[in-house]
Write a protein that binds this DNA or RNA. Sequence first.
DNA 1: CGCCACCTGTACCAAGTGGTACATGTACCG
DNA 2: CGGTACATGTACCACTTGGTACAGGTGGCG
Lengths: 205, 205
Amino acid sequence: MPGEVRGELLSRVVDRMAEQGVSALSLRRLAADLGTSHRMLIYHFGSKEGLLVEVVREIESRQRAALASLDFDPVDSPADAIRSMWRRLADPALWPYERLFFELYGQAVQGYPGTTALLEGVVESWLDLNVELAARRGVPAELARTHARLGLAVIRGLLLDLLATGDRAGTDAALEAFAAGYEAGLPVPTPGGVGARRKGRAPTR
Amino acid sequence: MPGEVRGELLSRVVDRMAEQGVSALSLRRLAADLGTSHRMLIYHFGSKEGLLVEVVREIESRQRAALASLDFDPVDSPADAIRSMWRRLADPALWPYERLFFELYGQAVQGYPGTTALLEGVVESWLDLNVELAARRGVPAELARTHARLGLAVIRGLLLDLLATGDRAGTDAALEAFAAGYEAGLPVPTPGGVGARRKGRAPTR
DNA sequence: CGCCACCTGTACCAAGTGGTACATGTACCG
DNA sequence: CGGTACATGTACCACTTGGTACAGGTGGCG
């Protein structure tokens, strides 16, 4: 079942799906685009659903890699951290992959077989990263988790917006409004009192 | 082409799709579930794509209706406004429709025929509402637009989270963190200076 | 050489797809 | 009554789908 050909094939499959979408693609068209026969896809992945599972796994793995490569500067303020994350993710070069991500997300919440694995960790793993980061600054884990959840929602929500409208300026402004809130010192409803207030800085836009 | 039967049929189609998803459904299965024949669906809607177009339009129309029915209390603070909006949308009874919405959204960003109409107004129409609301409080339109965009992203992003994880408490907390930021007086980067700062109030949670 | 594991193509299959032709039913209105 | 517009069902069509059977084709190694 294993093989080195398989991995190379899978990677090309994901790229193709990012361009053409997943739900409209048949094994035959996919194989034709890749210069092989649909027989090969079945041979390597067992079935169409098996292929889909691997695609989902590959996307998860790529996201995990992207997440690990973020490697925030620990002196970054939360505001700067989310700014830099947005700057990376809003890059039009990534749009095809984000479209694919949201398409699969939509399938997954509907429970389509093969895609649901995407949902495990699609939120949690990102939160864990932030909790770890926040720990270095002495922020309690529960609080960090909540704000990471909010930040993730902002980014995903604005990506949805961006992919639908293409309005980079508008979404940039909205993100900046969010980041600016943190810069001014967001009140954090922790029993200990108001959270760390940072010095203001002129907005970059 | 018109007819009263058609409207009733469409409404039931949307309900079924909310339960079973759209991309895995064939006209035959759909018709069987509805107690009719696939011939009828083609008769009333012309083709499968035609049906999809009508479904999308229906969903848009329902959202518009929901939006119109919100009818915010004009004395609500922005924080309370987004709180009440979240409270309505996070209701599990709406989850099937939200799943359907995100599934179609995913299809639409990929450009599948029949679904792309969903994208027109999927952001703008919600912004317009807020701009109008904000005008009553004297907030400039451009600023209101940006913050509405942010609020919409927060809600959609948290809905994605909620549908994937089912973690109502976690998403509630994240939204509260967002709302609390507004309550404490969010700095608004308008040329005229800092925007209206409101009195703080103890968080409800 | 022969054997074996991996890989690939051709031909085929049953099942399901969207869509159409045609016949039929039903109700309103002249 | 008859006609006409809307509605519905049955039977069928060409086509595509995922999956399988079978026949190779490599290349390494005894």
